[in-house]
């Protein structure tokens, strides 16, 4: 059995969702090949080469793949799909854009957001925004899956890994679609989906300016900042802050929900976090029901106190190693 993984990267670094996808492939078992498509992807290839358990890296380095347009990447993948029983991509905006296109061209019903691999083409995946979990068995000969990264460990690195490297001939870009521009949010903080600590703000923050409060705490904890859909819709923060079923799915070690009531759609994006803390002045906030620790207090007094408290214990040297 041979498994092909579409690597997600930003031309510099392999994204953490790719590591999780590789670890999902290891659960399936078989030879694992990773396709690194892009333009000038040498550093990504080098990183991929240091992951344990990969047999081959397929490198498609061509100007046509600079922006990873679905039409070109699907076409490229199709050209090598024949020898693979499984094709996996992370269930991110990248993977979700491309995997269904590949699947349809192979006449395969793709399986989205795989949370667990049970063997014999049987998988668990969330439906209804995670309010139900379905176990499904595919009858397709080939399997095309997108992998929910937060449900799998990160693939391990190995000093002794030495996968075979094979060059895949790139093709001239198609002319149906072209890249125009991109606006990426620049942040000094860790990426939301891979941060160990996430602090999210909701409508309780009242405006975008008040998110600075959360930044003070995030600085101390080395945390990423997220938001509920209510806060995004109200225009407090940009859309890519959104944690939830229609935003990003996160599962950090510590998730701190501040001024978030806990709509189902938000919970779907964070309930797999290891430890959940909720701070809300509303005693009946639904988010308390899924929190490990909750505090009924106005966030405008609680967050500055939180910062002071951290500084206090840091002062005692207890937490020096965690300095943000």
């Amino acid at each position: 059995m041979t498994i092909l993984i579409l690597a997600e990267h930003d031309h510099q670094n392999l994204k953490s969702a790719t590591y999780a996808t590789i670890s999902a492939a290891q659960k399936i078992g078989g030879d694992i090949h990773v396709l690194v498509a892009g333009s000038k992807v040498q550093s990504v290839v080098t990183q991929t080469g240091k992951i344990a358990g990969i047999h081959k890296i397929l490198v498609a380095d061509h100007a046509a793949y600079e922006h990873l347009l679905a039409e070109d990447i699907a076409d490229l993948t199709l050209s090598i799909a024949k020898e693979y029983e499984y094709i996996l991509a992370p269930a991110t905006a990248f993977g979700k854009n491309i995997a269904p296109r590949i699947a349809a061209l192979l006449d395969v019903q793709q399986i989205s957001d795989v949370m667990e691999i049970l063997g014999q083409k049987t998988y668990k995946r969330p439906i209804y925004a995670g309010n139900a979990i379905t176990t499904i068995q595919s009858s397709d000969v080939k399997q095309v899956l997108t992998i929910r990264a937060t449900c799998f460990d990160q693939a391990l690195k190995s000093e002794t890994a030495s996968p075979q490297i094979e060059i895949v001939q790139g093709k001239q870009a198609q002319s149906q679609s072209r890249f125009v521009s991109q606006e990426l949010t620049v942040s000094v903080r860790p990426e939301l989906t891979s941060a160990k600590v996430v602090i999210s703000g909701g409508r309780g923050l009242q405006n975008g300016e008040n998110f600075k409060l959360l930044e003070d705490l995030a600085d101390r904890l080395g945390a990423a900042i997220g938001a509920s859909r209510a806060a995004v819709d109200a225009g407090y923060v940009p859309n890519d802050y959104q944690v939830g079923q229609t935003g990003k799915v996160v599962a950090p070690d510590l998730y701190i929900a501040v001024g978030i009531s806990g709509a189902i759609q938000h919970l779907a994006g964070m309930k797999d976090s290891k430890v959940i803390v909720a701070i809300n002045k509303d005693e009946d906030a639904p988010i308390f029901q899924i929190s490990d620790y909750y505090l009924v207090q106005d966030l405008f007094t609680a967050i500055p106190e939180f910062c002071q408290e951290i500084d206090k214990i840091r002062g005692n040297g207890n937490l020096g190693q965690h300095k943000a």
Binding site: I133, T135, I136, K271, I290, Y294, F306, E309
Partner: peptide, 26 residues
């Protein structure tokens, strides 16, 4: 192309601990 074998509720989280103040939380 696939059959549904089972639909179940997601695992429930244990209900949490209420803390009195930030100091206890930390």
């Amino acid at each position: 192309r696939f059959t549904t074998l089972k639909v179940e509720e997601p695992a429930k989280r244990q209900s949490g601990v209420k803390v009195a103040n930030i100091s206890e939380l930390v």
